[in-house]
Computed example of a mutant assay.
Amino acid sequence: MNMDEASEELAVQLAAQGVIGKRVDEMESGFMMALDYMIQLAERDQDDKRKSLLEVIKETVLSHLTKKCPPHVQVIGLLCRTPEKESRHELLRRVAAGGGVFEGENGTKLHLPGANLNDISNQADDLLETMESRRVVPDRKLLARLVLIREEARNMMGGGILDERNDRGLSTLPESEVNFLTKLVALRPGKTVRSMIKRVMQGEDEGAETSESEDGVVGEKILKGVAGRGSVSGRKPLPVRPGMFLETVSKVLGGIYAGNTSGVTAQHLEWVHQNTLQILQEIAF
């Protein structure tokens, strides 16, 4: 980027901040949806300048809205804009230690609030549950980022994936995730299994979505029992979702370790967990 382009972008950011800062409270809920639609149109038209301008406006709106949120929600917003895994971990460590003012990469001052790791994890999980309970996931990149944030915050709390604070309280495991996991553990860990996981995390194969209006259900969470049991409602189960899939892996792992039967199966599940996180990192940023 040359100096003229850099100056122009700075001018756009300053203008956006000035206008949005005064008007953000008056914006209608549909404004962000309209912005996303316009960004998609600009991308389709290959109009990079228009797309860049719209993204600056969106980023500025999100920044102003984030500042009005509780500390743990602000942190999630920051983590969603942090592509490097190591940088997210450093951010989490500083936030957990009480926050403060730190110097960014470009010499800028970064203000980090203090926040509880459990609050961050639970908030990310709540957002995930809302997104994954829909027939169609509106933003797979955001979904992948939220899964990473939840898992990384949980891991930093000490107990990792087996920490009892991470239990979502599922009485029965979801059928789609269990069936897919059963298929994975029947195969030897390697490229084939990793490819299967990647396709599902991207919304293909077992992760493929159906219409929002299919069988008359819109945004309803459907959890069925393990393999082959009929649904009381008769409705089709949701496809495999990234957050729920990792939740299922953790639940099964916890059961194995509790029974002191760890071995090849546990190692296989840990391999699946690790590779799923790596794949989600590729999808997220």
Rank of each mutant, 00 (worst) to 15 (best):
F245R: 06
G263R: 13
G255P: 04
R145D: 12
G225F: 10
F245T: 04
A144E: 04
G228K: 15
K183Y: 14
K109C: 01
M157W: 00
I39C: 02
T172V: 15
L53T: 11
K191S: 12
H111Q: 05
E212A: 07
V75R: 02
I256V: 14
I222A: 06
S195M: 06
V137G: 09
I283D: 06
R23P: 00
A42N: 05
E55I: 01
M131Y: 04
G263P: 12
L148A: 07
T130A: 09
P242C: 11
S231Y: 15
E209F: 13
R81G: 09
G30W: 04
V272P: 07
D215N: 12
I197M: 15
A208C: 05
E152Q: 11
E84L: 06
G21R: 03
G77Y: 04
Q278L: 11
S63C: 03
Y37G: 03
G107L: 04
M33I: 03
G228I: 14
V95C: 02
R154T: 02
P70D: 04
S52I: 00
E86W: 05
K51A: 13
V240F: 08
M1F: 08
R199K: 15
N116W: 00
I222K: 11
V185D: 15
L143Y: 10
E151C: 09
F31N: 02
R145E: 13
H268T: 12
P237C: 12
Y257S: 07
E5G: 02
A6M: 09
R165W: 01
I197S: 10
G21W: 03
S63R: 12
I57A: 07
L35I: 12
L162N: 01
V12F: 07
N166D: 05
V252A: 10
T82V: 04
L65V: 10
S171T: 15
D139H: 06
G158A: 02
E206I: 03
V200A: 14
E8A: 08
S7N: 07
T60G: 03
D36H: 06
I120G: 01
A11N: 05
A97V: 00
L181Y: 08
G225C: 10
I197D: 09
G107H: 02
R168Q: 09
Q123D: 10
T261E: 14
S29N: 04
K251R: 04
M157K: 05
F285L: 08
G243M: 03
Q278H: 09
D119F: 01
A15L: 09
T172N: 15
V61T: 11
P138K: 11
T261C: 07
L277Q: 14
L78E: 05
L223S: 08
D4N: 11
V56R: 08
G207H: 14
V178K: 06
F31W: 06
Q123G: 00
K109Y: 08
R194P: 00
R93Q: 11
R140I: 04
F180E: 05
L127E: 10
E43V: 00
S195D: 05
P71W: 01
G114K: 01
G230F: 15
S87R: 07
R235E: 12
D48S: 07
L14P: 03
V217L: 14
L142P: 03
E8S: 08
S52Y: 00
D125E: 06
T192R: 13
V95G: 02
V73T: 05
R94P: 00
G77P: 04
H111P: 01
G169I: 06
R81V: 01
D205M: 11
G228E: 15
